[in-house]
Nucleic acid binder design. Structure first.
Lengths: 150, 150
DNA sequence: TATTGACTTAAAGCACACTTTAAGCTGTAT
DNA sequence: ATACAGCTTAAAGTGTGCTTTAAGTCAATA
């Protein structure tokens, strides 16, 4: 099964212009062309594109992804460099996940706050509520993030 | 304890120009001014700034944060709207965290891949390795993401 | 064969989140 | 009093990641 740029774009849920842009930036050296110059994506390109997605997801810029692809094409002499790249990324991503989990706790608090404000009819009522009357984990979050807008 | 823009910027780890930009965009209506027009940040502004950080972290744009701050200033009539905002964000953030955890697994795989390639001296050796010789969770990831660059 | 919709490119445009610049003011230290 | 670091503003500039435009080509259908 082969696909044109528009078909592939639809499959992976991006705009065709995005794939053309990636190609222009050197991210798709594996994409073949028909005699008349039309891009031809194969089945296995789906996997490759999902790795590109993954690298983007993990915080790499287009340029960094390009340099990774260049390294792959240079072969085994770049193994150390690639290892270093991924180890650094892993650490960064782990930190980001932890930060987002913290953020999620704050959002949980906010949701509870406004649900309660809705029931009570005002934010003031919630502001006056003693910690002892709040759910345990909500009270925990509030202790860390107090005094902000609402 | 009060701080100037430069001091506060240093404390929270951003450039002073960033705080001025936020102020210009209406994100800091709480910041006071000295008689001569110099911004004066108070101790409690630290909390407020950390919530702004949190909202950014959770994916809100500057404009969305601004509109939230406007809602807060409008008072209790916007409780429902604010609740809806946070509930939507919560769902989006949860999905993002899950996606990042998946990405982390792929990075774990990548790290293992290049550590092994380094030991073996080539990526080829790793590519030829049967799933049965890989750590269990690595093999699991490989099954989902196969055939990509390396 | 003509039309139509999707393909091609280079180049310009856009949105976002800052950052930098320029010109001027403030406040402390010597 | 003067120097100087840090504050102020409006406005212009930057980098990233696309998207849009314009002008043209390709390929399948009526």
């Amino acid at each position: 099964m082969v696909y044109t740029v528009g078909e592939m774009a639809k499959i992976i849920g991006v705009a065709p212009s995005t794939l053309r842009y990636y190609d222009k930036e050197g991210l798709l050296p594996f994409v073949e062309r028909s005699g008349s110059g039309i891009r031809i994506f194969g089945e296995q390109d789906l996997n490759t594109l999902s790795i590109i997605h993954c690298l983007k997801q993990s915080g790499l810029s287009i340029k960094e992804i390009k340099s990774f692809i260049d390294m792959v094409q240079q072969g085994d002499e770049t193994i150390d460099e690639r290892l270093e790249l991924f180890e650094k990324r892993r650490i960064i991503l782990e930190k980001q996940i932890k930060e987002m989990q913290n953020t999620l706790k704050v959002l949980d608090y906010k949701c509870w706050y406004y649900q309660t404000a809705k029931k009570e009819g005002s934010t003031e009522a919630v502001d006056k509520m003693p910690l002892s009357k709040m759910p345990k984990d909500i009270a925990e979050t509030k202790k860390n993030f107090k005094n902000f807008f609402n």
